[in-house]
Simulated scan of single mutants.
Amino acid sequence: MAIKSATATIDLSALVYNFNAIKQMAPKSKILAVLKANAYGHGLERIAKALPQADAFGVARIDEALALRAGGVVKPLVLLEGFFTGDDLAVLAVNNLQTIVHNEQQLQAIEKAKLDRPLKVWLKIDTGMHRLGIYPEQFNAFYQRLKQCPNVQNDIVIMSHLGCADDRTSATTEQQLAVFEALSSTLAEEKSMANSAGILAWPNSHYHWIRPGLMLYGISPLLPNDASVSPVKPVMTLQASLIAIKAIRANETVGYGGNWQSTSDTTLGIIAIGYGDGYPRHAPNGTPVLLNGRRVPLVGRVSMDMITVDLGPAPKDQVGDVATLWGKELTVAEIATYATTIPYELLCNISRRVQTQYALP
């Protein structure tokens, strides 16, 4: 009997397939592959090294970029939140890190810095999402100051971020694109707008650079009710073993708080995964788990280290059998819907105690 603790298997062939599928959608665009949050839970350095075709990688913060540099990754790296203090600028210059500029404080810090080499800058405009980015009326002044600053390379990238691109029916994306066009159309600089949803649903957002994140890892970035067939394959399969099987009688309860009660005699299976591994604690009764080719329902509350499923009255399952929590036949998007969250959160919440193994292309 071989018991398998919580294990995430990363299919690097699927990752490369997804990258190529994305490239086909925007063949004239360069690809900044987004690797923030430990490559959405898939392993920062391993994912970077599996994508030598990428033109650049995007991370959120400087520690992620430095980890990639320490791991031998030499591709251009872009800090998608920019830098936080002026003291970071020397580190950016030494490590050849590119930065987004999205506020006055960052611009002033670059202007005042004493650097051995100029920085590559991406200037971010808030075209309507109202998160990071300068206001449209600030654009001309920021652009001119960056162009005149000796600490900034001459080839600035103009960018923005789409807030509602996952919804094909929303007018917001076209409004954002109109603002972006009005500000940047006469400039010779490279431009970037499209996230995963923009790549898939809004071809006019592709420009010179696209920034795929969720799609790289095999999940559709569109709303769950969108009928589009996903062109990508899931990269992560999360599995764990059945560690106990026990019979219960009708009307008996299961788990903390006894929030599930059997309606008939049945058999329970206990699986070695829980919220301590990143499985969603609020997954409700009925959330599917794939076991021996069939779906069995979650019953009772998710514990830190275990979940319980209803195997039915006469199961053939055995201790040691491997259950799939999400993967190719049971998508993380479906589990996210049951747990009233989004796939991003489930992937990013995979904990350090989950074993990660890589299936090579």
Rank of each mutant, 00 (worst) to 15 (best):
I3G: 10
S5I: 11
T7I: 02
T7G: 07
T9S: 13
D11S: 14
Y17E: 08
K23H: 03
K28W: 04
K30H: 12
L35G: 10
K36A: 06
A37P: 03
A37E: 06
A39Q: 12
A39V: 04
G43C: 09
A50W: 01
L51I: 06
A54P: 02
D55H: 12
D55G: 05
D55R: 08
A56K: 08
R61D: 07
P76M: 06
V78D: 05
G82N: 11
F83I: 10
F84V: 15
T85P: 04
T85H: 14
D88P: 02
A90I: 10
V91F: 06
L97F: 00
T99D: 04
Q108G: 07
I110E: 10
A113H: 11
D116W: 02
P118F: 02
L119D: 03
K120E: 05
V121I: 15
D126N: 14
T127N: 06
T127H: 00
R131N: 07
R131Q: 08
L132D: 11
L132V: 08
G133K: 02
G133P: 01
I134G: 11
E137S: 10
F142V: 05
Y143L: 14
I158D: 09
I158H: 09
G163V: 01
T172E: 15
E174G: 14
Q176F: 06
Q176W: 04
V179F: 01
F180I: 12
L183V: 03
L183N: 12
A188F: 05
A188G: 15
A188Y: 02
E190K: 14
N195L: 09
A201Q: 12
S205H: 06
R211T: 07
P212R: 09
P221M: 10
N225Y: 12
N225W: 08
S228N: 08
V229M: 11
K233R: 14
K233D: 03
P234A: 09
L238F: 08
L238H: 00
Q239W: 04
K246V: 01
R249Q: 13
N251Q: 13
N251L: 09
N251R: 10
N251G: 05
G255H: 00
Y256Q: 14
Q261T: 09
S262G: 05
S262K: 05
T266F: 01
L268C: 03
L268K: 12
G269Y: 09
I271H: 03
G274F: 00
Y275S: 14
Y275K: 02
Y279K: 02
P280G: 01
R281T: 10
A283C: 04
A283M: 01
L290A: 14
L291R: 00
R295C: 10
V302Q: 00
V302T: 01
S303G: 13
L311H: 07
G312A: 08
P313D: 13
A314M: 15
P315R: 05
V322N: 10
A323Q: 09
L325C: 02
L325E: 06
K328T: 14
L330W: 12
A333K: 10
A336R: 04
I342G: 02
E345R: 13
L347G: 00
Q357M: 14
